[in-house]
Amino acid sequence: MSGSGGGAEPLDPTVARGRSAVTDALEDVSSGSAVVLGVSGGADSLALAALTAFVAPRREIGVRCLVVDHGLQDGSAQVAAATAETLRGLGLEADVRRVQVGRDGGPEAAARSARRAALASYAQEHGCVAVLLAHTRDDQAETVLLGLSRGSGARSLAGIAPRDGLWRRPLLGLSRTDTEAVCRASGLSWWSDPHNDDDRYARVRVRRDVLPVLEEALGPGVAAALARTAGMLRDDADLLDTLAAQSRGELARPDGGLDAAGLAALPRALRTRVLRAAALEAGCPAGDLTAAHVVEVERLVTRWRGQGGPALPGGVTVSRTDGALVFRRASTRG
């Protein structure tokens, strides 16, 4: 492991902010319940573990930690085992689980999918009500920049949500520098993942090359500003999604179609969300359904001249029939 430890000191202001953030994240977790921490051995997740080890017992909340070994590097089992021992030294229950990483969506996405599946399964096995993850403000800024580079909409630019069902991310208000400070104040050494320096990954290039240039050109605070932007966009996107769901319910016909005239009367921000949601429900894979696909579907509403609809990912078709848009999934029978 790399990094540096430090002796006990009077309460560090960064530690105080971190404890407050974890307290807020656990505010609605009742006494006697338990949560899971996803821990990698890096500074971010060890800082989360140290903060939670202080906060949770005072609220009579149980804590279990899962160290996921992706098996992608030599020595990963030893790193995972050492991390589990560090967590036990904090007084936390810790287990290691080896996962099989697939290939869908690329190495980063595949590893994330395997990790999330392991954490969700572990939480269910142990009756835990939430999984706490250690994403930081820097992760948030990188996510927003990646979304901008891909021409994504508001939902993508809203970045990482503090809460998303089972998942909670208490440290989105802290930077990586802050989490390292928490580790030092807690006497913890951390592991540096070689993948975090591998420029084959777009996120690494954003972290190493793009954000420093922006900070130099525009002044300090760019990451914090991007994180604030994500928060504001998330509020907007949540409202629009709620309104779109209401509109979709109002426009639905008994046969499952969507009233075309009603769709045409909607503001475009709502119409495109309704169409995307309908396509996803019909079976389009979320990762394959692009904004360009939605634009082609929208032509059946705003520029219909009797033409057929586009073929969509996942074998989904859409057509305009009797004044309604109808989404269907092609039969898989051979």
Score class of each variant (00 low, 15 high):
Leu211Cys: 06
Ala158Gln: 03
Glu85Thr: 15
His70Thr: 14
Ala230Phe: 10
Arg305Ala: 12
Glu27Asp: 12
Ile160Gly: 09
Gly153Tyr: 01
Gly7Asp: 12
Ala292Phe: 09
Leu51Ala: 11
Thr317Ile: 07
Gly75Tyr: 05
Val222Phe: 09
Arg320Asn: 00
Phe327Asn: 00
Arg273Trp: 06
Ala224Phe: 00
Pro57Met: 06
Ser45Gly: 07
Val96Gly: 08
Ala25Gly: 12
Ala16Cys: 07
Thr136Leu: 00
Val222Asn: 08
Val210Asp: 06
Thr52Glu: 12
Gly159Arg: 04
Ser331Ala: 05
Ser156Cys: 05
Cys65Met: 00
Leu240Gln: 14
Cys128Leu: 08
Arg299Asn: 08
Gly75Trp: 02
Ser156Asn: 11
Gly127His: 13
Glu296Thr: 14
Asp138Glu: 11
Ala291His: 08
Glu93Ile: 09
Leu174Lys: 03
Ala154Arg: 07
Ala56Glu: 01
Gly41Ile: 06
Arg19Asn: 10
Arg59Val: 13
Ala185Asp: 07
Ser319Met: 01
Ser113Lys: 03
Glu9Asp: 10
Gly315Cys: 03
Pro267Lys: 11
Glu180Val: 15
Arg273Glu: 08
Thr23Ile: 12
Ala117Gly: 14
Ala223Gly: 08
Pro212Ile: 14
Val301Thr: 00
Gly257Tyr: 01
Val15Ser: 05
Ala43Arg: 10
Val318Ala: 05
Ala8Thr: 14
Gly306Met: 02
Gly159Cys: 13
Asp24Glu: 13
His195Trp: 11
His135Gly: 06
Ala141Asn: 03
Ala282Arg: 05
Pro107Val: 09
Ser186Ala: 15
Ala244Gln: 08
Arg276Lys: 14
Gly334Trp: 10
Leu258Arg: 03
Ala130Val: 04
Gly283His: 07
Ala324Gln: 02
Leu37Asn: 14
Asp138Leu: 07
Val295Ile: 13
Thr52Cys: 03
Leu148Ala: 15
Ala109Lys: 06
Gln124Leu: 09
Arg253Asn: 14
Thr242Ser: 15
Pro162Glu: 13
Ala277Asn: 12
Arg273Ser: 11
Leu243Cys: 12
Ser149Lys: 10
Leu146His: 13
Leu166Asn: 13
Ala49Trp: 02
Ala244Glu: 04
Ala123Asp: 09
Ala123Arg: 09
Val96Phe: 12
Asp259Gly: 02
Leu275Asn: 00
Pro220Leu: 10
Gln307Met: 04
Gly165Ile: 06
Arg203Cys: 09
Leu66Met: 01
Ala16Gln: 10
His293Trp: 07
Val182Cys: 01
Tyr122Val: 01
Val274Ser: 02
Ala181Leu: 04
His195Gly: 15
Leu146Thr: 06
Arg116Trp: 11
Pro13Met: 13
Thr272Gly: 04
Ala245Asp: 15
Leu132Pro: 04
Trp304Met: 03
Ala161Pro: 13
Arg273Gln: 11
Thr177Asp: 14
Gln100Gly: 04
Leu218Gln: 10
Gly18Tyr: 06
Leu133Tyr: 08
Leu26Ser: 03
Val129His: 10
Glu60Gln: 09
Leu90Ala: 05
